[in-house]
């Protein structure tokens, strides 16, 4: 029984990471109806930046916040430079640009920081076992950080004027522009925020999976599965979906398929959701009028 409880708690901890990346995906999806294939690579790059800062002797939390800031700027710049010119192009062009980004960022990360696996520090250490040894300090800390991030984002979108502007720009760009919202600026901000959230997820997961340039590939897929499960147009649903996928993945890995088929679990979740309930658990069914 202890084994099961441990698997579930570990699942919640990784689920928190999926939930963050899922949230980043949903944020970009809502604003632009794009799915950013390079999200994982961007997060890996951010994590490497944090690793570099830490190894250069910067205190962990300072490096943590500096990385979030740098990632925000990188995300916003990518939107400005690469996505803005093809705003009205067909989806194929966007997918092409994302694939190009994936290649560039993934390869540049390996080129700058090397392909060897690195150990990433965790700020959460504890001398004594927590909750009767069921949970590690890092798992607990990760979950806490994720929840704080999610809460901050919720408050930002729900209660600030900027958040309201971003939601308006995503919901109806034309009307938003008419009431004086700078829609282009909102899109760049959205990309920046998504990159920052991705960076946090990367820094939280790196101590567990170790840091190398392909670290986030699987995580992106789980996050996408979580986002679909919860409903890709519903941030709250995506977060819940992310947690659910984390637990499911851990349980399936421990009791059903073994670790070597874990990625396939993501594929199965994605396909089952699409076949059974394409809108996700909490998503809106979109009707289009013709």
């Amino acid at each position: 029984m202890d084994g099961l409880a441990h698997q579930i708690i570990a699942g919640i901890a990784t689920g928190g990471i999926y939930a963050s990346v899922a949230l980043a995906l949903v944020m970009i999806y809502q604003a632009t109806h794009h799915i950013n294939f390079a999200q994982g690579e961007m997060a890996t790059l951010s994590t490497f930046i944090a690793w570099y800062l830490v190894t250069e002797g910067v205190p962990y939390w300072l490096a943590f916040f500096a990385t979030i800031g740098i990632s925000f700027v990188i995300g916003a710049l990518i939107e400005r430079i690469l996505l803005r010119p093809v705003q009205n192009a067909p989806p194929l062009t966007h997918v092409g640009v994302f694939i190009g980004l994936l290649l560039i960022i993934g390869n540049a990360t390996g080129w700058i920081f090397g392909y060897t696996t690195k150990v990433f520090p965790t700020p959460f250490v504890s001398d004594r076992p927590l909750m009767g040894g069921l949970v590690s300090a890092h798992e607990l800390g990760t979950t806490a950080v994720t929840l704080v991030v999610l809460m901050l984002i919720f408050v930002f979108f729900r209660y600030t004027k900027l958040g309201l502007g971003m939601r308006a720009a995503a919901y109806n760009p034309r009307s938003a522009r008419l009431v004086g919202i700078n829609v282009g600026m909102m899109l760049a901000l959205g990309w920046g925020l998504a990159a920052a959230v991705g960076a946090i997820a990367g820094m939280m997961v790196a101590p567990v999976v170790f840091l190398d340039p392909t670290m986030m590939l699987g995580i992106l897929l789980y996050a996408f599965a979580g986002a679909l499960l919860g409903g890709i147009d519903n941030p709250g649903g995506a977060v819940l979906g992310g947690f659910a996928v984390g637990v499911l993945e851990n349980l399936a890995g421990a009791y059903v398929v073994g670790t070597e088929l874990k990625l396939t679990v993501a594929l199965i979740i994605i396909i089952s959701v699409l076949l059974v309930r394409p809108a996700g658990l909490f998503g809106r069914v979109v009707l289009s009028r013709v």
């Binding site: 109806h33 890709i232 594929l267 994605i270 699409l274």
Partner: peptide, 17 residues
């Protein structure tokens, strides 16, 4: 059931697996 980016990401998942 899918169009555009959804399909791209689902097939992406297939290739990764």
């Amino acid at each position: 059931r899918l169009a555009g980016h959804y399909l791209a990401l689902t097939t992406f998942a297939l290739a990764v697996a």
